[in-house]
Amino acid sequence: MNEKSKFLKNREKLSRHHTKSFSKLSRDRKDLAAHKAMRALAICVSILVPVFILVLFLRARPILATHNISTLLFSTTWRPNQGSFGFFPFIMGTLWVTMVAMIISVPLSLLTAIYLAEYTRPKVRAFIMPLIDLLAGIPSVVYGIWGVLTVVPFIQKVVMPSADRWLGFSPLFQTSNPTGYGVLAGGIVLAVMVFPIIIAVSEEVIRTVPLGLREASWSVGASRWQTIRRIVLRRAFPGVIAAVMLGFSRAFGETMAVLMVVGNVVQIPHSIFDAAYPLTALIANNYGEMMSIPLYDAALLGAALILLLVVLTFNIGSRLVLARISYS
């Protein structure tokens, strides 16, 4: 990188010299102006996220000023008409759905990623990876439609009866909500939505583990699987965690697909079949309406702020890990 920028600097000097010697000063000036404009543009774009945070913070300030933060976060009462804005049910809704999604998605994605990176031939991989990319390109309302048409009936007709028969003793599987719309439906839809993220990132991370390391392990007689488990995955561990964090932040912030299948009942879910009301659904369903209720829209933007900060934390964390990996 250093070499490159040094080279480019030299180039620049040379080309300046060149243009000057032909006394084309106007072109030179135009070049410089363009350079400055491009830099300004890039820097503007790069401060967008801090600006987002600032805007949300400013607009949420009325509610932060009148309500204790811990009340906002941990109160379970959500009665905007009476001025009670407890986000806890929504936060729990988001966490439940996201956790269920990750529990389903992480093992399946990682196994697929390991398979693609370690066991398939390049030709097969070149066939499968684009298909997984297609999964990433499907719009979230289509996932939502799929959830409504396939996942919800499946849960209602197949999963709930059998869970009732085999796992009914655990409160995790008991519910008074017979519709199928709920945490599990949201979790399954989200799980499929984050497949491509976790798979693509962790597959790439696993493949960046140097071949020499694998060969070193094979050369003392370790099998392929032993090498993967003890060496490759250990080496790829930070990157795999980063991949999972990326998936988590995607699931955490997903709106439309979840909204269509979680049931949207303001309550703290206690079972995977209970309906939930995630933060994103709260914003999507209510923002822009009922603006007459005092503080209501400040509360919703506060919810957006919480969402953004959580997603940001996970995103930055994983990006920093991935950047470190690609430099080492």
Binding site: M1, N2, S5, L8, K9, E12, H35, M38, R39, A42, I43, V45, S46, I47, L48, V49, F52, L56, L246, S249, R250, F252, G253, E254, T255, T280, I283, A284, Y287, L300, L301, A304, L307, L308, V311, L312, N315, I316, R319, L320, A323
Partner: peptide
């Protein structure tokens, strides 16, 4: 362009983070 290392990383990180920002937040 000869962008300083730090600036380049910062811009790329910002773009990555922008990529990860939920679209409902953009909307709001």
């Amino acid at each position: 362009y000869p962008v300083p290392h730090f600036t380049k990383n910062w811009i790329r990180l910002s773009l990555d983070i922008l990529w990860g920002t939920p679209s409902i937040v953009y909307g709001a």
